[in-house]
């Protein structure tokens, strides 16, 4: 069976002033469908860049990326945006909820952007599972960090993406809320066979994953 993610000699250079700064120096990675993968490594090793490329937020400088059978080399910005809309869910360290919208509106926004309409059954299922059904009419400022992150997870998975990309999802949470969020991710992975790639600095968080890969200086050093 074809892996859901495959990268071959993936490189990314950032131009800063007159200097080319390599963020990825040839990453080869294979992720199977339904896998929960933790990516660990020191700051600046290229973890977030790898996640951004896999999510189609930015393109690679060279190398090959195949995600769910889609070759990013053949896709322009609009194609990658369409791909992201239907196949990728993002969870960020800083939650990134829209502050003007309620929890409900933040979650529904993802469905609105996807354009497939509101699915009340899926909405109820996800919000119940994440334990935020009673908080749906609250704005982000009225929610705790853990609740905000659970709303962000709900928004990321409401459209049933093929892959959930989580960039340090517990980075801004205390131990109790971190554990709660990690349990939710684990449940999503086990109950719905949700493929998850999670960046983390926290070894305890990484231990929740099926597999851990370590990055250093833009390369995968152990998988």
């Amino acid at each position: 069976m074809e892996p859901i993610i495959r990268t071959e000699d993936l490189k990314k250079l950032y131009r800063i002033g007159k200097l080319d700064v390599p963020a990825l120096r040839g990453v080869n990675l294979i992720v199977e469908e339904g896998e929960f993968l933790a990516i660990v490594g020191p700051s600046g090793c290229g973890k977030s860049t790898l996640l951004h490329i896999l999510g189609g937020l930015t393109g690679p400088t060279s190398g090959r990326v195949l995600v769910d059978g889609n070759d990013f080399r053949a896709m322009n910005d609009a194609d990658r945006t369409r791909f992201r809309r239907h196949k990728i869910g993002f969870v960020f360290q800083r939650f990134n909820l829209l502050p003007t919208l309620t929890a409900r509106d933040n979650i529904e926004l993802a469905q609105s952007i996807q354009g497939n309409g509101f699915n009340p059954r899926r909405f109820a299922q996800v919000t119940e599972m994440l334990g935020i059904a009673a908080k749906l009419n609250h704005r982000p400022y009225a929610l705790s960090g853990g609740e905000q992150q659970r709303v962000a997870i709900a928004r990321a998975v409401i459209c049933e993406p093929k892959i959930l990309l989580a960039d340090e999802p517990t980075g801004n949470l205390d131990t109790e809320n971190s554990q709660l969020v990690l349990n939710m991710l684990r449940t999503l992975n086990r109950s719905f066979r949700q493929t998850i790639l999670m960046i983390t600095h926290n070894p305890e968080a990484a231990a929740v994953a099926d597999r851990i890969i370590r990055m250093r200086d833009g390369r995968v050093v152990s998988a």
Partner: peptide
């Protein structure tokens, strides 16, 4: 700017 980034991460197109 950040909000627009969030919308883009959700797959919002330029037209949206």
């Amino acid at each position: 700017t950040r909000e627009i980034g969030i919308l883009k991460s959700l797959g919002a197109s330029k037209g949206y």
